[in-house]
Nucleic acid binder design. Structure first.
Lengths: 251, 251
DNA sequence: ACAAATAAACGTCTAAAAAACGCTATAATA
DNA sequence: TATTATAGCGTTTTTTAGACGTTTATTTGT
């Protein structure tokens, strides 16, 4: 037994945090969501009572901020810290758990029936960490081909995706979905995957390359069987200096 | 005693909803926030122990949605329903109540020390309802000249205002701060008050008038001592048809 | 009845940005 | 050395933003 002081505190039974983890896979050009399996087999039955997918979530501890609960979820699932995350909405409907499976699950886990969950979404490249050896067995699913989801998690993902689609148009958050060094084509692929549109490569390229916060590196892509492309990085510093306030009314 | 069935339920002691009510006063051209007084005089003291202002908030009932808690706050304070409201952030720091007054107040009201509050902001014209006869004695304060505020409410207002400033640039929410019929000048005044900038009247006018969802009415202003201006309305229907997807990447 | 004052409303020009589309360059590999 | 896929540059047209001058409608004072 360790002599380390154990400052573990109680969880708040009616407050949880769920994270919609969006990962962009630049090879398949697909925007994915990370889900874990929810599986329950009752003693008296042959078929599983619950067998679907859910978002990962934790209950908040008494002495913990909401952001730290989200960080805990992310650390546990991805091993990573300091990820871009956006707290976008609270889901607190008294009838959130309405279907049979959710009720069985809640009883089995001794959940509080009226739990409000504070939802975040998170952006990262899918290859930022490895899925193997993770005890939760998380899996990536394309955002438009999700499996059957438990609780109100389909709704949560829909709203996260809607918010992402909106924000990506006027905030520099796409870069969070890519590695530090990226090509203009990858950036375009990311926009296309998120928005579900086609973008003219020539206009997109010109528009982005002329931005002062998109910085060309002294490096080119390697290991490709075509003309290797120029690598770029995004400078948050430069961005913030430029976009102090622009006040272009765009309604 | 009434025979009406009383379906009053318990409150959830650790979950509350606070509303930042923004009102635009087109006469003073000022963006205001509605606050109520927080006053407490302890038996053994001459001077009040607590005497400042706060946002209005309620605890959520066990059988109530979060949105309905917000609606309850708004109804109580303004008498109005169906106001534009945006749930923008949760404030759930374990040390939210840190100064002396907040702790005295919390003890006196038997508040749960770890309460998370779900914050909304609301937009309406200040003349949409009357302040008189309201038992809470709410008062309007210009957003840039707020009095001393209790709890973390200054922080909540700051974040609401920051979110409003951002959203107003690309979502048609200004109209919520004006009456159904408005002049182009009033619209401009509203933008100027929110953003704290000056806008060229001639360019603004041209830009707005050409929008299909800004519809000129067969009416002019009355009771003004200058050339009366044309009244317009905002058509949400037309707006939504046009802006299904515009996908202009504006980073 | 008329002039002065004031804000509404319209117009013109210029520069910048977006959109549409044609074309060339570079590397791997067959 | 030819092929081919993608990277990357260029040109024109259209749209929008920004700066600023002018006219028009109304009330109010004389």
């Amino acid at each position: 037994m360790s002599t380390t002081l154990n400052i573990q505190t109680e969880i708040i039974p009616n407050i949880s945090v769920d994270c919609v983890i969006f990962g962009f896979d630049k090879n398949s050009k697909s925007l994915n969501v990370l889900l874990i399996e929810r599986f329950l087999k009752l003693e008296d039955s042959e078929v599983p009572a619950v067998n679907d997918y859910v978002l990962r979530g934790f209950h908040t501890f008494e002495n913990e901020t909401i952001d730290d609960t989200a960080n805990r979820v992310l650390k546990e699932l991805t091993g990573l810290e300091h990820l871009y995350k956006k707290q976008f909405k609270v889901f607190g409907d008294p009838n959130r758990l309405k279907n049979e499976k959710d009720i069985i699950w809640a009883q089995n886990e001794h959940f509080n029936r009226r739990t409000i969950t504070i939802a975040y979404y998170v952006l990262l490249p899918t290859d930022a960490f490895q899925l193997e050896n993770n005890p939760y067995k998380p899996k990536w699913f394309p955002v438009n081909q999700l499996p059957e989801l438990g609780f109100d998690h389909q709704k949560i993902i829909n709203e996260a995706y809607a918010d992402l689609k909106e924000k990506v148009l006027y905030k520099p958050i796409v870069f969070e979905l890519l590695a530090d060094k990226f090509t203009i084509k990858e950036l375009q692929d990311t926009f296309e995957a998120i928005l579900g549109v086609e973008i003219d490569n020539r206009n997109f390229r010109r528009k982005l390359i002329t931005k002062k916060y998109i910085i060309a590196l002294d490096e080119k892509q390697t290991g490709v069987s075509k003309k290797p492309s120029q690598l770029y990085m995004f400078s948050k510093d430069v961005y913030q200096k430029i976009y102090k306030e622009s006040y272009l009314i765009n309604i």
